[in-house]
Design a protein around this nucleic acid. Sequence first.
DNA 1: CGGTATCCTGTCCGATACTG
DNA 2: CAGTATCGGACAGGATACCG
Lengths: 109, 109
Amino acid sequence: MLEFRGKQYPCCASLTMGVIGGKWKTVILFHLMNNTLRYSELRKAMPTVTERTLSLQLKDLEEDGLISRTVYTPKPPLKVEYALTEFGKTLIPLIQAVAAWGDYAVSCA
Amino acid sequence: MLEFRGKQYPCCASLTMGVIGGKWKTVILFHLMNNTLRYSELRKAMPTVTERTLSLQLKDLEEDGLISRTVYTPKPPLKVEYALTEFGKTLIPLIQAVAAWGDYAVSCA
DNA sequence: CGGTATCCTGTCCGATACTG
DNA sequence: CAGTATCGGACAGGATACCG
C-alpha cells in the first residue's frame, strides 16, 4: 500500500493513475508539455471541456504540484498563465508515451 | 476528434486514458505484463478490488482487444487464464512508465 | 479575462448474495 | 473456480448563470 499527498493506493500504477487519471488531466498536461498557456488558450485547445471542469482539474493539478499558476495583473481583466513545475516535467516522457499510444491505436483501428 | 472502438475522443492522450483509465485497468495490465494469470491469482494480487469490479474491468479490457481470456476446462470447477494480446503488449512500455513514475513520486514525497 | 455558484446527471464502483 | 445479479452510494463531470 502506497501513499501520496494524503491518498492511499494499492499499487504504484494506480498511484500514477490517481494523479493523472480522470477525463481531462492528461489532456491539460499534454498541452502544457511544450508551452506555457493562458486559461483562454487552454479553453481553445480543449473546446469540449466546460469551464467548471477545466477550472477544477487545473486546481487539482496545482495541488498535486504538477503545474504552477501565475497571475500577471493586479485587477481584472486578469492574465493568468499555467505551466508545468519541475516535478510536473518529470511526467513528460509518460505523457508523450500516452499520446503516442493513442495515435498508434487509431492507426491500428 | 479521434475515434476508437465506437467511442470519440478529443485528443490522442484522452483516447489512451479512455482505454487504460479507471481505477483498476492499469493495475490489471501491470500484473499481466510479465505473467499469464488465473482469475484467482489476479484476486490475490489485488486484494482490495471486488469480484464484480474485477470481472467488469477484465471484460472491458478483453473487448478493447488488450487481453485474452482462455478457458481450459469444459465444466466447473473452471480454469481460466488471462494474458496480454499482441496488441495489449504494445502497452507494456507505457505501463512500465506509469509504474515507474508512481514509485518515483512516492520517493519524492 | 478568468474564473465560481448552483444544480443535476450519469457512471463508476463497492457490498452482498447467489450460480454454472 | 470463476464468475453474475441486484442494489445503492459517492463522486466526476456537464449546463447554465453569475462575479471580481
